[in-house]
Amino acid sequence: MRFLIIDDDETVHMYLEQLLSPYARLDAVFSGAEAIDKYQEAYAEKDPYSTIFMDILMPEMDGHEVTKKLRDLEKSMNVDGPDEFKLVMITSLKDTKNVSQAFFKGCASCYIVKPFNKVQVMNELRENNVL
């Protein structure tokens, strides 16, 4: 498995890398533009990400916009069904609008609200077949 973490907070990168490194190879980026580049590189290398961890509140391009661009890239490359990446939203936002947008427009598998802890993250990932 290969995971991509997209968050503008380095402490989130470090926390998730420590927590998830036994389960997958990990890359982490700080912006949506970097995420799109990494995603395209992974497919070009025939080593795509199985799961993407996405923050919503980021400068320049928010997580919903990045998700839409990544899902559009999947469609343009004829990636569908079980080959689509699983989306795990990691955010401090817990309002109905953002949660709904993540699940219904972004096809999120999980929505984990910050601050989170190891048990919460691992339970959510296991319950939603991410791990």
Rank of each mutant, 00 (worst) to 15 (best):
E84N: 10
G106W: 02
I36V: 09
Y43V: 00
A44I: 08
I5P: 01
L57T: 07
K97D: 14
V121N: 00
V88Y: 02
V113I: 14
I56Y: 02
Q18E: 13
E41A: 09
A35W: 01
K86A: 07
Q40R: 14
E34L: 03
R126D: 11
E34S: 13
K118G: 01
P82N: 12
G32A: 08
G32N: 02
Y15T: 09
A44D: 15
R2P: 00
R126K: 15
P59I: 07
C107S: 14
I36Y: 06
T11R: 11
M77S: 08
T11M: 10
R25M: 14
D55Y: 07
T91R: 00
S21P: 01
E65K: 08
K75E: 11
E45W: 14
L20F: 05
C110P: 01
L70S: 07
K38Y: 05
M77R: 12
F104N: 13
A35G: 11
A35I: 04
M122A: 05
P82C: 10
L26P: 00
L16K: 03
L4Y: 02
L93Q: 12
E74F: 02
V113S: 10
Y49C: 03
K118E: 13
Y111D: 00
V113D: 07
C107R: 13
I112Q: 00
L125W: 02
G81C: 06
P48L: 07
P115F: 09
A33N: 10
V12A: 06
L26A: 05
K38A: 15
T51I: 12
I5N: 00
A28G: 09
E127N: 15
S50H: 15
P22T: 07
I112L: 09
D55L: 04
C107K: 13
Y111C: 03
A108M: 06
D55G: 04
Q120A: 11
